[in-house]
């Protein structure tokens, strides 16, 4: 189970990185084409705002949770005994998982409705909307799975995952 979650997380993390690098490349091309050839990329603005920003943020959520990359005020808990600390961590994870599970369900429904009704933005380019909601759902589901999985993990395993330095493989 842990292995499957990890592989999925890494796959979507790379997709998130790809989206980030794509934003960088597309904007650079857009500026170059606008300046040098007076021909900006007409689709760039919408494509970035609709799809790439969503992919960049939601897809790596599971990975970020694995690294415990979300900042906390750990000032007060640091003085507590390790057992209490790990219980607080578990409760926090459960609450966060519940919150984002609800959100994930809402977005799964949105994706389903959008796909079923063929929702799209029509103009010179046609943008289908369900992939956007599907990306949000995928990221949130991974976050929830990781947060729940962490509840059952030992403090040592958690620390090892969080301190993982070799992010490239």
């Amino acid at each position: 189970m842990g292995k499957i979650i990890r592989v999925c997380e890494d796959a979507t993390r790379y997709a998130g990185i790809a989206a980030t690098l794509a934003i960088m490349a597309i904007i650079a091309c857009d500026v170059l084409f606008r300046y040098a050839f007076n021909a900006p990329l007409a689709w760039a603005y919408e494509f970035i705002a609709l799809y790439l920003m969503a992919a960049l943020f939601f897809l790596p959520l599971g990975y970020v949770q694995r690294c415990q990359g979300n900042v906390a005020v750990d000032l007060f808990v640091r003085v507590l005994p390790a057992t209490i600390r790990s219980w607080l961590f578990r409760v926090g994870n459960l609450l966060a998982a519940a919150t984002f599970a609800v959100t994930g369900m809402v977005f799964a429904e949105k994706a389903w409705d959008a796909a079923a009704s063929g929702e799209e933005i029509i103009g010179p380019y046609v943008w289908t909307t369900w992939p956007i909601y599907a990306v949000v759902t995928l990221g949130l589901v991974q976050f929830v799975l990781r947060a729940l999985y962490q509840v059952g993990q030992s403090a040592t395993t958690l620390q090892r995952d969080a301190a993982e330095e070799a992010h490239g493989e």
Binding site: G16, L21, F57, P60, V64, G69, A166, H167, G168
Partner: peptide
Amino acid sequence: RAGFVTACSRAMRTTCM
């Protein structure tokens, strides 16, 4: 390549945070 992926991953972590 590994250094590149690490740099990108760190950027993702900060951004998502």
